[in-house]
Design a protein around this nucleic acid. Structure first.
Lengths: 196, 196, 196, 196
DNA sequence: TATGAATGAGTGTTCATTCAT
DNA sequence: CATGAATGAACACTCATTCAT
């Protein structure tokens, strides 16, 4: 392994182990053994086990915010933008299933300060998502009879839940699943006929 | 506390602590202190910390299966049945938010045998839910262009996610949220117009 | 089980378990389960786990002292008496192999007072044995060139060791082994030729 | 204590405590206190309390096998060889009385795998001893009217029993006792007169 | 006599982290 | 940069014994 990739291989080993066993039951000894380095080396690159965990959150949050910003930047028809965002988030989540498992399972194990930091960044991410919904509602394209927060939650629940049931080895490809879930979400957003 | 409720008070304390801090970081000492009993007493009623955790799963699984069975038993229009089931599951989940947090966060910490037992019972629960979807599709009431498993996941994702965002102290009542999420779900199930 | 045999069945279960696993690793719960009684019942008949252990020593010591006294009482040629004693001790030990294991393995686990009591009674037992040796030496029948205590130890070592190697399922019967070991012992006692 | 002797001082403390109180009643806390180290240090060098116990067996078994092999290697008159072996085993046992106590008292407390390993090595040690007996019998020097296994047991019973009665503070020196016990053993091995 | 829930001090063991080298 | 011996506080769990019934 080339120098400089030490931190990377430690992070990779950590994600895999945290996803498989959970954060708490995974010992630092297991991580360094899996990464093929010594404890001393790990503590050279990371200040603590918590640091390792936060690093995972940091990467995912940065990645997702960046991708969403890029799509919004491109502009276009609001439904097209939303569909693109949804499919992209879903695809990205499927590509990083392990990180997703860790993300949703271990939030409460972060140190309080870092949990707050993660919450802040997720909120700002959800806000960017909500802004698209708001635009669609203003344009009369999305239903306005349910609270915005609930619509946001309704989408991210699918993202969250992917790791619980989706398997890359299963019959459905990642794009298919991403497309279908996005479609279901958009279907539920369409304004209901006047009578309803 | 009345005599005989020792096991109950231990379980209640455990649910609360597991939900707030996670299973692993919660010590048996904390649980018994919160329940106001001694370690010895706890180990008189439960064989292990894992036993305590499994007890929580056991109760939720039994409760949910029972409620779903009762609604299906009553019969009626398929959409009405499905809406009733969805609202009931969502309401029940809101009433037991702590248990829900524990349920989805700590599955991997159960002993392997018990994890398998939980998986088996959840599968049978999801199967009963899927049977309703199947009936609706046969009757032409629900869309047939996405896999059944994905539709099941699309619903339970909302149930799962409730604990992540819903707060009883928030502006929305439990029934409102349950009604709205059920409505969004049913909206996404309706057959798409021919042109789509 | 008839009333009054409760203590007996507890003792039997205890001997078996102590012999198989040792005193310390055997829990009171195991003993009462094996005996088919409750803890309360056990503590009705025995004051403590130590009491149970001492009961085993008490029975063996009483039995052996009694048998040795009876044989000495009968009198006769000193070598015949000694041979009879040796064979009897060996036979009795084979009949109570489990008790023997417990006896030699768990002495140090008795409470100090009881350990002293056991030591006292063993000493008096060994003294009675030594008295026979002394008579044989006085009569010029046994060698006098080694300390008496060593001759006593040389015999009881065989008794002690039986449980380490003898199996009732093995090829040799109890009497054969008892006879052979007694013979070896007596052979080593015979005065050495003048030249030595 | 010089650095690097940590493991040694732990082992020494353990032998002493195990011999005095038995394995089970001796706590790891007692051992580390006696050795003047912390629990963490102990668990750095030993995987478990059982590991500590097995280490004691391992050393004795290796030492004894080695010494016996060396004596046999030298060759010579069979009775001289046997006497040398017996005296050496007895002397070594007296020099390591504590280890001997632990050896015979705590075998059943080893983990099953390790108990099997100890049994295997003791058997091979006894086999080497039996080979000398066999040679003596073939040469007509030792009696052939009792089973070989019983002759082996008859010797090791004395070794085993030493810790029960011999005290270095007593009147007899180690060599005297070793010499006398070896002599008694050899006396019992000599062929009986023709009439028998 | 007998029960069994309850005690509480104690057990062996783990583990994130530190620090002299 | 990296090591690995050492720390020490915490952990889940056990168990002989008691006592109200």
């Amino acid at each position: 392994m080339t120098r400089g990739d030490v931190a990377g291989s430690i992070t990779r080993a950590a994600v895999e182990l945290f996803a498989a066993q959970g954060y708490a039951p995974t010992s630092v000894a297991q991580i360094v053994a899996a990464a093929g380095v010594t404890k001393g080396a790990m503590y050279h690159y990371f200040q603590s086990k918590d640091d390792l965990l936060f690093g995972i959150y940091d990467r995912i949050l940065a990645l997702q915010q960046e991708r969403l910003d890029a799509i919004v930047e491109r502009g276009g028809d609001v439904e097209d933008v939303l569909r693109a965002v949804c499919e992209d988030v879903l695809m990205t989540s499927i590509e990083h299933l392990d990180e997703g498992i860790v993300f949703f399972q271990s939030q409460h194990l972060l140190s309080p300060e870092r949990r707050a930091e993660v919450a802040r960044r997720r909120r700002s991410y959800h806000d960017a998502f909500a802004a698209i919904l708001r635009r669609g509602r203003t344009e009369g394209r999305f239903r306005s009879d349910v609270p915005e927060a609930l619509l946001v939650a309704h989408f991210f629940s699918d993202v969250h839940y992917l790791a619980q049931w989706y398997s890359p080895e299963g019959p459905q490809s990642a794009d298919t699943v991403a497309g279908e879930l996005a479609e279901l979400y958009l279907a539920s957003l369409r304004p209901t006929p006047a009578v309803e």
